[in-house]
Design a protein around this nucleic acid. Structure first.
Lengths: 244, 244
DNA sequence: CTAATAGTGTCTCTTAGACATTATTCG
DNA sequence: CGAATAATGTCTAAGAGACACTATTAG
């Protein structure tokens, strides 16, 4: 198995990156989908898919660079929360041949998600779709599997991390943050226990009062670390058997 | 960005799979390393590396198939615990060009790890190395990063899953299992709390008594599910800020 | 003042850790 | 029997959920 030989002998699979980009709009978790081109020589023409595309060896230094490039192109957002989800590779997932995709997932605050509207109609049609709907669509490639994995990972991690904070613009308030948790988890949480947990985790810094929706203004907070979530020592309630 | 064009325009990166294979020998966590061939046209000749190699498009149906194939070749074990770790891709990690590796991690009981001795000397030299030592070596490629990530993932998950059960042959006993936890975590655990936790998680089935090392025989157990670990609702002790 | 939302206090119940105690087997 | 290991019981303290209560502001 000499390597020079290997380089010649082994056919190289196609390499792509796909990103599941989430945000919360109208009290619902949404994912960004892009429509595949309709040309006949394209795989899955006209179908909806996760935004993504080929790794550009000439342009991307690393896989993560590639993911950030695609994210910027689709959403106009430069530095959202981005984490690797996994890779899917096989002979059957792309009609053009053996391919590997490197899947990422990203979280965006709703306000910058709106900026995406400005980019809409530029090149490829893209739209925000509620995840329940998206999972019912016949997505291109194996993107349904990937989206399922992304949603499972998100829901799982929300049980014991501060991830939902990345779904909000700063300054954020605790009532807003609790709402994000509830939307992603699909169940209500106790206010007192929630606040205790967030404040004890000490990942928030007070800014000023924020005159939110209600009568009384809420305390505003900023994240101490915009790059990584905090991990809590326990899960909410009893969530045994859930995905992580 | 027509796709047919893309297939022609974009150079395809190299695609490999690497596996961090762990076992516990002599009360220490070990990882299997393989020595790179010494030919001059090879990258990192003679260096130690995680076992792995090129994806074989002709032979492997999926990435996981590829990982299992490499595992079987190196260890003779067909169905150990195997999970995807992540992918590392970039222009600089392999001197032969832009490459992506799909990293997996596997857990083996010590008894089957011994079978590996039988395979030793066959083709490529391979040996079990304590992880602390392995992390001090100058490994090939970016395998040090990958190994660090694998160890962090293992240590992190051991805090709240039944993963260490995959490091033991069946039937296993609770004292043995506790030892596995302690070795991976590097700290001692309380016996009573440990047993309560394991038994309440209900992932074990009683077999018969096992006349272990000590005076009194211990109850033997078998895993209800050999494919996936169980998740506990909390971490051991306070392990805030640890990797997951 | 009242309605609405933000934020706090207190009680209870679960449960993990600590550690003492009992059980079983070998020599 | 006693040494060694396996297994259980009990106490305590921390912490989460439940829920009632107080605080602040708009109209």
């Amino acid at each position: 198995m000499a390597t020079r030989k290997a380089q010649l002998v082994f056919e190289r699979p196609l390499a792509t990156v796909d990103v599941a980009i989430f945000t919360v709009l109208q009290e619902q978790l949404h994912v960004l989908l892009a429509q595949r081109p309709k040309a006949d020589d394209e795989p899955f023409p006209g179908r909806w898919a996760l935004p993504g595309g080929f790794v550009d060896v000439a342009q991307d230094r690393t896989l993560e660079d590639c993911a950030r490039r695609k994210l910027l192109a689709k959403t106009g957002v430069a530095a959202p929360y981005l984490e690797q989800l996994g890779s899917w590779g096989g002979a059957d997932r792309d009609p053009r041949g053996w391919s590997c995709t490197h899947a990422y997932f990203a979280l965006l605050p709703a306000d910058v998600a709106d900026q995406q509207a400005a980019l809409a109609g530029e090149r490829v049609p893209a739209r925000w779709v509620p995840v329940d709907e998206a999972l019912k669509l016949r997505l291109a490639f194996d993107h349904r599997d990937i989206l399922e994995a992304a949603v499972a990972r998100l829901r799982g991690k929300v049980e014991y991390t501060s991830l939902p904070a990345f779904l909000l613009p700063e300054p954020l308030t605790l009532p807003q943050l609790q709402r994000m948790y509830e939307i992603v988890l699909g169940r209500e949480l106790d206010k007192s226990a929630f606040r205790r947990r967030m404040l004890e985790a000490a990942f928030l810094e007070e800014t000023g009062p924020v005159p939110g929706a209600g009568a009384r203004a809420a305390q505003g907070y900023r994240l101490r670390d915009r790059d990584a979530p905090v991990l809590f020592p326990r899960m909410f309630k009893s969530a045994e058997g859930m995905e992580r």
